[in-house]
Design a protein around this nucleic acid. Structure first.
Lengths: 344, 344
DNA sequence: AGCCCAGATGTTAGCGCTAACATCCATTAT
DNA sequence: ATAATGGATGTTAGCGCTAACATCTGGGCT
């Protein structure tokens, strides 16, 4: 156990790297001056700075962020909580966040809830232990405990993906209106028997909101809005299955409004394979606008969601607040765009 | 500036959350006992534990991980450095890592080098400041400085994606052999004029290794091994461009070996659009085996890489070492599999 | 009864850094 | 010459936790 060669108690960790005071001694200054060179170089005279920088180099100093965070009671960490990493949508959001935060010296702490609100609560608890400077989480709905905890949270907080009233700030789009808009478009195109097909919609309530918008619009038009739901995660193959299932259960269906592009693309590829003509025999629509949908023949009709932009805006909201400024808007709705292809 | 209501100097942060000693006082024990309840509950008598747990609940204690990490000189953080987040491959590796680490209470710190080794060096420097318990980085090649730094690094370290001799441990596959294997297969299938097409191969040297394997095998067979390279990131559209370009520059080409599935799929979709028959007029092969390649008509011939498995194994190697055990193997080669489709 | 021992709990002393305040010194204004 | 100023640097006292050691219990044994 105690095979460490030196038993002076000063250092307890194996790798005893030099500290601020080692650098300070080497440079002949006090450690706070070294700290200033690192954190606010402009507040130190240039000659001193150069001397210290040389000393840092010489002793091979590596900054201890943990100690810094403890002393200043804030870390450079910003937890980002998303429901899934299998869904490209969140990957793109994370990229937007990451790129922006990185430029400003913040580090993302990634949390994955797997669409479980209990898991979200656990994650938030853990993350708060890291004294994060800010927090990003997905959606406007949370467990009561989370709602309360975040309400008391004194730092910038952004809820992403949805539009609406946030605890602190939000960046997103209206899923209800997106569903409504697509239903609208399908009706305009002359489709009359439209089935909505999605998966895991119990956890993913934003998909449910899209269905709600879809449903309300169709009912308004005096149509029915049947829903077909699966419970595995969204994959291409599931789109194929869904297409078959819709045609079996609703032989009169002339269009399928999928909850996401992945399933929609799977359906198109499946139809191509079996010579089912799209949109003549059945029309296909998706949601989110992923690149491959736009390379298919026929091109997928879908709604483009501002994924990376959500990430970038969310990060900017936080950075603005951390600079002590107030963002122009607290709740940002980045909207969406209908992208007509030939599939519907 | 100093508008905080209470000026007792004890707490400097805005949100003064209860500490271990608050809980200790509440429970009538010493703070170390509370610490034990949190870190090794079995070392505390049950009655005491329950009493303390109740106190924790009552005061709403949130553990301060930063202080814990400083005191114990190790954090629960494990930096994971990958070259890209746009490439699904790394997303899947990260998922494998994340799922495994999470179960054992570790938190990933994500770093993205954008295929730059200088950036890798910077990232490693920053991350070492967080006293990480272990480290995961991509590839066996690094800047000299990184090589030296990691050589001295006293904690578990896994280099992923490649097979070969690691600084500490590695989990991956041989890209050279994968390239060779595919070239082999194409030759066996009767193709004689095979073009290799890739993008950003200066940074992505694993793609270059695949090309090397491909090249060596073809030259061995007395064939030429032309290479066509682009410099934007790999997208479906680039595959389309590549297909056109190959047919223009090498009219006699009967097969294209793409450096990755995304471009290969783009090429197939493009060919389908313009009625070019695959593989009769030109064969297409990819690398990595992404789901959509397997849904196309014709199905993409490709090589399946063990992406999630790499993540899971890498995490397990680290966990084994952190438990104080020695893993059975230091360098793990998870191999690959040729997946024949109809595209070649 | 007295002793030993192991398991439970407590005491002490930092981990490496930074906030807050204190001091110093060269300028400039008076 | 002296005071006033402001920029550069230093002193002090923790941040909240845990390692290491010290102490206290209450059986079980002779």
């Amino acid at each position: 156990m105690s095979e460490s060669p030196r038993h002076e108690r000063r250092r307890r960790k194996g790798l005893d790297s030099p500290t601020l005071s080692d650098v300070a001694r080497e440079a002949g200054v006090s450690s706070i001056t070294v700290s200033r060179v690192i954190n606010s170089p402009d507040s130190v005279r240039e000659s001193t700075r150069l001397k210290i920088e040389a000393a840092i180099e010489r002793v091979g100093y590596v900054r201890n962020m943990v100690a810094g965070s403890l002393a200043s009671a804030r870390s450079q960490f910003i937890p980002v909580i998303v429901p899934s990493l299998s869904n490209v949508v969140f990957i793109e959001v994370i990229q937007g966040l990451q790129a922006t935060f990185e430029q400003h010296g913040y580090q993302i702490l990634l949390g994955n809830t797997d669409y479980s609100m209990e898991r979200e609560e656990e994650l938030i608890h853990t993350f708060l232990g890291w004294s994060p400077t800010a927090l990003v989480t997905t959606g406007l709905r949370h467990q009561p405990g989370v709602q309360a905890l975040l309400g008391r949270y004194a730092h910038p907080l952004v809820e992403i993906m949805e539009s609406g009233d946030a605890i602190d700030m939000s960046v997103g789009m209206s899923h209800y209106h997106a569903g409504q808009r697509m239903a609208d478009y399908l009706v305009t195109q002359g489709y009359r028997h439209i089935v909505f097909a999605g998966t895991q919609m119990d956890g993913n309530y934003r998909a449910r909101q899209r269905y709600q918008g879809h449903c309300d619009r169709l009912v308004q038009q005096g149509m029915e809005a049947p829903l077909l739901e699966w419970h595995s995660s969204s994959q291409f193959e599931l789109g194929a299955t869904a297409l078959d299932e819709v045609r079996r259960q609703y032989p009169q269906a002339d269009a399928i409004h999928f909850a996401d592009d992945v399933m929609a693309c799977g359906a198109i590829l499946h139809a191509n394979r079996y010579g089912l003509r799209i949109p003549q025999e059945i029309a296909i629509a998706g949601f989110t606008c992923l690149p491959f949908g736009q390379c298919l023949t026929p091109r997928l009709t879908t709604i483009s969601s501002p994924r990376e932009a959500i990430g970038r805006h969310a990060a900017m909201q936080i950075i603005t607040r951390l600079k002590g400024e107030q963002p122009d808007e607290v709740n940002i709705d980045l909207g969406f765009e209908l992208v007509p292809g030939e599939s519907a």
